[in-house]
Design a binder for these strands. Structure first.
Lengths: 234, 234
DNA sequence: TGTATTTTATTTGTCGACAAGAAATCGACA
DNA sequence: TGTCGATTTCTTGTCGACAAATAAAATACA
């Protein structure tokens, strides 16, 4: 890992360094490649990416702003822990955002939005077909994120994406312990959601999102409550 | 401004510089001391606070993360504009957060929460009494923020505070043009909200928050739509 | 006089180095 | 052997300086 590696005199474009390390670190955190509590060493990252600590630091400040890492002043910085104690607040917010974004999508979507949503749904269906649990998590989040985008409310989009990120971490924690798969039922429900959205049936969209979200929540809750091993990760 | 000034060898505590400039810049932005579009010059701030550009930069990255400033790569950074075109999305989110946070406060509040809420309400009533429009804006936001805290959902608290900040900018824009005052009616409604929260009447809290929020929204809307001068600020 | 091109200037992005703060290590002493 | 204190080490926070990118200004040319 410390050899001269691939690029000898790598020339980076001026502003791209921070985005690169931000994106990669973010992915590694959300995929639990860096599990909660992992130490984040600036100088280690600096020599890993062959750049100064300054752009590394900027990326870390951004991640800290999103709550993905915690910074102990003058001491250390590490990947933030998953708050299982207040998980119910997460579920409350998640269900509400599911409903609101689906509602707004039914109201404000345009033709091109539906194309994107359908593409995401196809990817999700493929992941389910392939029994690829991690791909299911990612494509499911992308599907609902696309719906939120169609709703065109930046405030809701922001919070929802944040929640989906947090959920990605929690689900990943589960799916790497087991080898389970999400049921085919979700695929069908997604199809129904697309139907009512394109029909601009706001109330039906809301109701569908509600049962869909609560179903996911109860499933996740069941997984976590019957598995005490996860308590140690707190 | 460039003389030796007050403190000759001012010793700042190690991590306090960024917080100081962050807090102050944030206040100046929200109070429209720095109106939308104002250029933010790093070196100017650096010599103003007598520190290096590095901590300034960190504060700016944080502010950019909250959407309070916009950074043009390699060019300039300035105070972000108020998005009047999508104001309805702001109102949608604001009303919903009003409702949700008040609901949750009725459910989860503790005795000490009510003390804080009542204190904020007293400050708001005093501001109304004194006809201090700016103080009304601030204390009203603080009142509802305290209710949100009592609801104990970090996700909703985060979004709601963000919305209150944005609303603070918009209202400030209005109240510095005119000399109007919020009606006494809001004080009474606040009292009603405290009553139903302490009675843990969730549905009544929700309903009260709904009419309260929508009333505020319609009032703001009326102010902005009847005043075309504000279009130029976009 | 108007337009294209070079030059200058200003601002940001990055770097290497140093200092401060806190934890870990070591050592003195009971 | 255990505890307290000094020292070392390790990481972060800050600094001054340089380089790149862009905009503005100046110049050349038709």
């Amino acid at each position: 890992m410390t050899d001269t590696d691939s690029s000898p005199t790598l020339e980076r474009k001026r502003g791209s360094g921070v985005k690169m390390v931000y994106d990669l670190l973010r992915d590694e955190i959300l995929d639990l490649v860096l599990p909660p509590g992992s130490p984040i060493d600036e100088v280690q990252l600096a020599e890993r990416f062959k750049m100064s600590r300054t752009p590394i630091r900027e990326a870390l400040v951004r991640l800290a702003g999103e709550g993905l890492i915690d910074t102990l002043p003058n001491r250390s910085t590490m990947v933030s822990s998953i708050d299982f104690l207040n998980m119910h607040t997460f579920f409350d917010a998640l269900v509400l955002m599911y409903r609101v974004t689906t509602r707004l999508a039914a109201q404000h979507h345009r033709a091109e939005d539906l194309q994107i949503i359908r593409a995401r749904q196809a990817e999700f269906a493929a992941a389910v077909q392939a029994q690829d649990a991690l791909a299911m998590i990612a494509t499911n989040a992308a599907f609902h994120s696309a719906i939120a985008e169609a709703g065109r409310n930046a405030y809701f989009i922001g919070l929802f994406n944040r929640l989906l990120d947090e959920g990605r971490r929690m689900l990943r924690l589960y799916y790497q312990s087991y080898g389970d798969q999400l049921p085919q039922r979700f695929v069908d429900e997604h199809e129904d959601m697309i139907t009512v959205i394109s029909a601009r049936d706001v109330e039906a969209a809301d109701q569908l999102a509600k049962v869909h979200a609560e179903q996911i929540v109860t499933q996740i809750k069941r997984l976590f409550t019957r598995d005490e091993r996860l308590d140690i990760a707190l």
